[in-house]
Amino acid sequence: MQWLELTARVFVSYLVLLVMTRLMGKKQLSQLTFFNYVTGITIGSMAASLATDDELQFEHGIYGIILWAALTVMMEYLTLKSIRIRFWTDGRPTVLIKQGQIVKTALQKTRYNVDELNMMLRTMNIFNMEEVDYAVLENNGQLTVLKKVQYQNFERQDSGKSFKPNKNLPTQVINGGKINKDTLDEMGLDEKWLEFEIKKKGYKLKDIFYAAIDSSGELFIMPVNRDSYT
C-alpha cells in the first residue's frame, strides 16, 4: 500500500466514523447496553480495517460502515416505538436481591455467584449484605442498590423516629407514553387502577410520558413536556 493511499484511507475512514457516531447519537456513545457496546466496537473495527487493509476495496468498506450505522439507527428507532423489541435487544434488569433476600434463580441465570455479588457491593462501599433491600443488575452490567430504610438515613435512625420499610422496588408502569401491562400484571394491578390514580393527581392518561410506583407504593408521574428544546 502506497503512503498516499494509506493517508487517504485513514483520513476518509476517520471522517466517516466521526459522521456515523454523530448520526447514531449520544446513546450509542454512552454504551448504555451491551448491544450499544458491541455495535460501537464493530464500527470501530470496520473503520480500522478500512484504513489499513489494502485487500478491502475502499468503496466496500465505506458502504459497510454506513450500512451498519443505518441498521443501528433503525434498531434504536424500533426500540423507541416498541417495549417488546427493546426487551428483546437490550434485555431486562435482573433483581439479584429482593426484600433483603438473594434470588438464587436470578444469580444462576446471570451466572453470578455470591462472592462476585459481594465484590460488586463492596465497590459501592457496602460491606454488609444485610444493608441491602434490593440489588438490580442493569443491562450494562452495573449493579444498583436500594438500601433498607434503616440504613438510608442514620440521623433518623439515631433520633428514634419511626420509619416505613420499602414496600417494593421502584417500578415503571408507563414508559414513553405506553403502559407496561406485564409489569402491572406482576404487581396485581390493572389499567383501570392506573387511570384512576392518574386522574386523582389531576392528569389524563394520554398526557403521561412516564410513571412509576416508588418504593413506598406511591405512584410518581411525569407528564409530557410539549415545549421545544435545543
Rank of each mutant, 00 (worst) to 15 (best):
N128F: 01
M129E: 03
E130A: 10
E130M: 00
E131V: 03
E131R: 09
E131G: 09
E131Q: 07
D133R: 06
D133H: 11
Y134I: 13
Y134R: 05
A135K: 14
V136W: 05
V136H: 03
V136M: 03
L137D: 11
L137Q: 13
E138T: 09
E138F: 03
N139W: 02
N139P: 10
N139Y: 06
N139S: 11
N140I: 07
G141W: 05
Q142T: 15
Q142V: 15
Q142S: 15
T144V: 13
T144R: 13
V145D: 10
V145Y: 04
L146M: 13
L146K: 12
K147Y: 06
K147N: 15
K148Q: 04
V149E: 03
Y151D: 07
Y151N: 15
Y151W: 11
N153V: 04
N153R: 08
N153L: 02
F154G: 08
R156Y: 00
R156I: 09
Q157C: 04
D158T: 05
S159K: 05
G160A: 01
G160L: 02
S162E: 09
S162W: 01
F163W: 03
K164I: 08
N166Y: 03
N166I: 12
K167Y: 01
N168H: 09
N168P: 06
N168E: 07
L169N: 13
L169D: 09
T171I: 05
T171K: 11
Q172E: 08
Q172D: 13
V173S: 09
V173I: 12
I174F: 00
I174P: 02
I174S: 06
I174D: 08
N175I: 11
N175H: 08
N175R: 06
G176R: 07
G176E: 05
G177Q: 04
K178E: 03
K178T: 00
I179P: 12
N180F: 00
N180P: 03
K181V: 04
K181A: 02
K181D: 02
K181Y: 00
K181G: 00
T183V: 08
T183W: 00
L184K: 08
L184E: 00
L184S: 08
D185Q: 08
M187K: 10
M187C: 03
G188A: 04
G188M: 08
G188S: 13
L189E: 09
L189Q: 12
L189R: 14
D190M: 04
D190H: 06
D190Q: 06
D190Y: 06
E191M: 02
E191V: 12
W193N: 14
W193P: 14
E195T: 15
E195K: 14
F196S: 15
F196T: 15
F196K: 15
F196E: 13
E197W: 01
E197N: 11
I198T: 14
I198E: 04
I198H: 07
K199E: 10
K199C: 10
K200I: 10
G202L: 07
G202I: 12
Y203W: 08
L205K: 12
L205M: 08
K206V: 02
D207Y: 02
I208V: 08
I208Y: 02
F209H: 11
A211V: 07
A211H: 05
A212Q: 10
A212C: 05
A212M: 04
I213S: 12
I213W: 03
I213H: 06
D214N: 15
D214T: 11
D214C: 10
S215E: 11
S216P: 12
S216I: 12
G217Y: 04
L219D: 07
F220E: 10
I221S: 13
